[in-house]
Structures are given as C-alpha cells and as structure tokens.
Amino acid sequence: MAKSALLKSSLGKKYWMALTGLFLCLFLVGHLLGNLQLLSGSKDAALHFNQYALFMTSNPAVKILSYLTYFSILFHAVDGIVLTVQNRKARPKGYVKNNPSANTIWASRNMAVLGTLILVFIVTHMVNFWAKMHFDEKMPLQTVTINAGGTDMEFYLTTNGDYLPKSRVDQNVIEIKNRTEFYDAAAGVKINEGYKDLYKITVAFFKNPDYGLIASILYALAMVVLGFHLYHGFGSAFQSMGVNSPKHSPFIRNFGKAFSIVVPLLFAIIPLYIHFILKV
C-alpha cells in the first residue's frame, strides 16, 4: 500500500506536484542567469552567450539536469491535469451563487488555466529556440567581421579562439560537417569547431520586422502568467510538502511572492530590451 500511496493517493500526487514545481523554479533561476547575458552591452556579448549555449548543450552534468527538467515539465503538467479533472468531478453540481473572492486569491483558483498557458508558451518557446539549437541543419555559426587593411573580412570564431576565414569555406577548402565541425576538405580531418550562433537567432527573432514586436509582447505576457502561477505556487509547494509553521511560513510566503515578481520580470525585460533598445 505504501508504495502505491505515493503515486496514486491525493497526497502523493501533491508531493509530486510540489517537487516538480520547485525543481522547475530552480530551473527558472538557472535559465534566467544564462539569459541575462543577453542584456550585457559588451562587444563580446554574442561570444559569451554562444559559449554558454554550447556549454548547456554539451556538458554531461547539464544533460542530466535538462532531462530532469523535461521530465518535471511533463510530469507536472500531466499530474496537474489529472488533479484538476478529479477536482472538477468532486463537485458535479456547483453553486448558483458563489463568492470565492471572499476567501481565496484569484491565482490560487486558476492554477490549471495558468499552467496550461505556460505549457503552450513552453512548447512555442522550444520550437523557436531549443529545437533550432538542437536539430536545425541551417543553424548559422558565429562569425565576426574584421577590417583588415581597408577591406572587411568575415571570420568564423572557433572554440579554441581561432579565426577561420569564411572565404576558405566558401571556396570549399574547408568543409563544415555535423553542423559545427570544420574539416580540411582535401585531407578529410577535423581541424576546428565553430559556435552555433544562438545569439544571432535570438536577436533576429525579437527584432524581426514582421513578428518581433508581437513576439516580444507575447513573451512578456507569458511571464505575467508565470508570475501569477508562482505567486500562489511557490508557497503552496511548501505547504504540500508539509512545511508550515508560524516560524518559517511568513518568510517562505514572502520569498515566494518576491520570487514570483522578480524572476518573471527579469525574463520579460530581455525580449523587450532586444526589440526596443539593442542596436545591431
């Protein structure tokens, strides 16, 4: 009984909701710290961001964390929907007159709607960036333009800090294989590796003349939705795990409220900054 209780019982499902939800909060912090590099005005901003993106897609420890994140999102969403369906069934006939705002906050009553909107956002977000980074064959590699003796020349930046003239690739002296690897075409040996230019993709996306404005606004709105989800969710997760005492709860609740405002706000600033302020 004990084992199945942790999966099937009402409380068991709540533990999983809380654990996955809090893990996703940690994920948000990590993701945010990475994204904030997009705000750096430094001339190496693109390189640093692309180096970070490479690290996030190749480091084995990060791989484990990212699989945990995929699992958490799926489990949290499925479990959340199962719970919500059960909860609907527990009151087949509702009240003619109900006054829920007298005893609850709006966010706490709309976790499923808020969560579903977040899920829609996560899917579109992954199609726009994650899928390109992982699977797009036409993902560009980072280049820099250097003025050498009065003429502009384009170079690929490589992972060991070299500059590889783009013209050599155009002339087929160097071949690109496996999306990022530079090969000596004649000898058939790998000589270097480039950076996938996620920075360029991101900036182009939010600066796109057709949909950049609407994408930036929708992104910011999605962060408002996330903020409401966390405004209730953060503190709620601790209650679900059985952490509630006069000593700790005020701190947890206030921290959760601050978290639910600061984290989504910082996320939302990035696309708006790229669209309205960043010069390229």
């Binding site: 209780a5 019982s9 009402s10 499902k13 719970l83």
Partner: peptide, 17 residues
Amino acid sequence: VKKMDEEGFGNCTNTGA
C-alpha cells in the same frame, strides 16, 4: 486519507478557502 479519497472528495490545492 485512503477513505477520504474513496469517498470522492477533491484534492487540496492550498487555496485556503
């Protein structure tokens, strides 16, 4: 808790109502 679930009560979402 087992009995509570069997009786068809819903799951707590910590709304505090």
